[in-house]
């Protein structure tokens, strides 16, 4: 579980996060949505420890980041997996080396043990035939799978995903969404996903947080988002003509 309380972050005169409080439960897919510039990425980076909040706190399990000793902070980082928007795979390493990297750096496992674990996670993300390929030799969808495999190989307790299906075709995007949700349920991970993709919202939004101008404007889930009267949320979610028509049809009882 991740608990966020009254989180503030600014850069110079620009207040990006203005007092966000929420809780992300473990074993469910938590989505952060909002327009560009609403503070989603800064919020995610604060939770990742890449930015230090100006005020408020983030609690991982039972302790806040500030309460942890440097050693415990490093231990916590080992429990975090991250799927970056562009994959952030290491160009000079093969798929297998990329996935093995966290094990090599953070554990004392022997090579055969690491290879078994890598094979296991690559199988889990349905990618067993690209071990020796470089990231530049595989498709965007495959790169995302490798990125997910690398994020979960060290059995993290917290998984963060920054727009995991951006740049993917709708079919691959759905596969990636479902994969993240399955992994979240299977390993009881606290997953936080930063997304613009409305398909993801309706597919895997077990908890949805809507940010507007650095504030938490609404929170709920994929069932409640259909029923909300919050104008900011409905304007955002139903900005697409297709989704608007679906909503009208639902309201008419089709």
């Amino acid at each position: 579980m991740i608990k966020v309380e009254n989180l503030h972050k600014s850069f110079g005169d620009l207040d990006v996060l203005k007092g966000i409080s929420t809780t992300f439960e473990k074993g469910q897919t938590n989505l952060i949505i909002g327009q560009s510039g609403s503070g989603k990425t800064v919020f995610l980076k604060c939770m990742l420890g890449l930015f230090t909040p100006d005020d408020g706190y983030i609690c991982y399990g039972s302790k806040t980041y500030e309460e942890l000793t440097p050693k415990k902070r490093r231990e916590l980082r080992k429990q975090v997996g991250m799927v970056f928007q562009g994959g952030a795979l290491f160009d000079s390493m093969t798929v297998e080396e990329n996935v093995m990297f966290p094990l090599k750096m953070l554990t004392k496992a022997k090579k055969p043990e690491m290879k078994d674990r890598v094979y296991e996670v690559l199988k889990r993300v349905n990618l067993t035939n690209a071990n020796n390929k470089l990231p530049s030799e595989i498709s965007g969808g495959m790169q995302k799978r490798v990125s997910i495999a690398r994020a979960i190989v060290n059995r993290p307790k917290f998984l963060f995903c920054d727009e995991p299906n951006s740049g993917l075709d709708p079919r691959t995007a759905t596969v990636i969404d479902n994969l993240i949700q399955e992994i979240t349920h299977e390993f009881e991970i606290t997953t936080v996903i930063n997304t613009h993709d409305m398909n993801s919202v309706f597919e895997i939004g077990e908890k949805i947080v809507y940010l507007e101008d650095g504030h938490l404007a609404w929170e709920g889930n994929k069932d409640l988002i259909h029923k909300t009267d919050n104008k900011a949320v409905t304007d955002f979610v139903y900005s697409s003509d297709l989704f608007r028509k679906v909503r009208v049809a639902q309201q008419k009882g089709y």
């Binding site: 980082r77 080992k78 975090v80 928007q85 290491f90 990297f101 953070l106």
Partner: peptide
Amino acid sequence: GTMRVTEQIDALEVMGI
């Protein structure tokens, strides 16, 4: 610089490296 642009440095930091 390419590692910075493609978030590979962030990936290292997130892993606690």
